[in-house]
């Protein structure tokens, strides 16, 4: 996963206003705010990085609040809108490597076909409490991977891991780390 795509800043466009939610432009051609990802770029990124069916995003709208934090909303509303939350955070943009959120991975990545790393019961426990895991066997992309384990009949995405140099780093936020039982 060596994708270094960024939406470049463009001085001819407006500045981002961080205190409000703005709906993402449909395509790069519709961009009016400098550095803002478009809906197409977001959906394409999920397809390219994780091979999810793009249709899973059809019912949703995408919004930016703050610098690069993207939210996914199950309905639509007028833009801009000044509220405290609009749907769920889905990813972080405006940085070299875009990063999906744990919430988005748990909700949308169960059908991902690419860059999914499956952990054993013991590894899953360590990952969930925030530990990094030595994992030499991975021969896929480096970068932000979907970390999953087998639970109740199928793979269940746990969260996001950063894979670099044979190590899977847990990016589970402190507030969501938990000490759990090992599943056989």
């Amino acid at each position: 996963m060596t994708d270094e795509r960024r939406v470049p800043e463009d001085e001819s466009l407006e500045d981002n206003i961080g205190q409000q939610f703005d709906r993402l432009p449909a395509t790069p051609d519709d961009r009016t705010v400098s550095g803002r990802a478009s809906r197409k770029e977001i959906v394409d990124w999920w397809v390219e990085q994780y091979d999810v069916n793009p249709k899973i995003f059809d019912p949703f709208t995408f919004w930016e609040k703050g610098a690069g934090k993207i939210w996914i909303f199950g309905d639509d509303t007028s833009s801009p809108i000044e509220v405290e939350g609009l749907g769920m955070t889905v990813m972080r943009t405006r940085q070299r490597h875009w990063k999906p959120t744990m919430s988005a991975v748990q909700r949308f990545a169960q059908h991902a076909n690419k860059n999914v790393i499956e952990l054993s019961g013991e590894e899953a426990v360590r990952f969930a409490q925030g530990e990094n895991i030595q994992y030499e066997a991975w021969d896929g992309d480096w970068g932000y991977l979907i970390v999953a384990h087998e639970l109740a009949g199928s793979l269940a995405p746990i969260g996001v891991g950063l894979y670099l140099y044979g190590e899977l780093r847990s990016t589970v936020p402190k507030g969501r780390r938990e000490s759990l039982d090992t599943l056989e």
Binding site: I72, F73, G74, S78, I81, G85, M88, T89, T101, R107
Partner: peptide, 26 residues
């Protein structure tokens, strides 16, 4: 809680409920 539960249809507002304004909405 909403993030953990994967809820996407929630709009969070911070107002006094007694004088709640629908102004942000369409």
């Amino acid at each position: 809680n909403a993030e953990r539960l994967g809820v996407t249809n929630l709009v969070v507002t911070h107002q006094d409920g007694r004088s709640f304004s629908l102004k942000p909405f369409d």
